[in-house]
Design a protein around this nucleic acid. Structure first.
Lengths: 74, 74
DNA sequence: CCATTATGTAAAGTAAACTTGACACTAAGT
DNA sequence: ACTTAGTGTCAAGTTTACTTTACATAATGG
């Protein structure tokens, strides 16, 4: 048990950002929509490279989009 | 061409940190020494989770250990 | 109604991260 | 000379990130 150690605020940020859709974000960072779905659902954590691109897409530092720890406190 | 988009300061940081060896860092973050070698050499970029653990091992925010962009300016 | 848009899900495949085990080289110590 | 610690490297294997294709559902608007 206890698998996922990295969480993110992608879903919240999409809505704070022009109501950006999963597809739009996916296109912007160069992955498929399914990848965004999986990240929002917490199925797995992204590569560091993708994490940087997503943070950049929101104009935020990486650690304001992704956080370490089994959540709680975010 | 142009593959690696994420660089790091691991090697420098190891020496600024108790002259930590590759093996010690590997143990501390829970990977093998070969993984540290590969990261220092830039063979590939780590998972986001490992990146967080490495930054934590140095007591630094992630973006002071890893940086996005084909280097230059770091 | 029917079409479209946004989202969820799932199976099978490729690619990249990471492991295991093994060997080689250099530097330092005895 | 011999040993040990630290590092580099390589090949083969497993695991995880990510793709492709496909189908399902709810919400909206004509």
């Amino acid at each position: 048990m206890s698998k996922i150690l990295v969480g993110n605020h992608i879903r919240k940020l999409r809505f704070n950002h022009n109501e950006m859709t999963q597809q739009q974000l996916a296109d912007k960072v160069g992955v498929t929509r399914q990848t965004i779905v999986a990240l929002e659902k917490g199925n797995y954590s992204p590569s560091l490279e993708l994490a940087f691109r997503i943070a950049h897409a929101f104009g935020l530092p990486l650690e304001e989009v992704f956080f370490y720890g089994d959540d709680t406190s975010q």
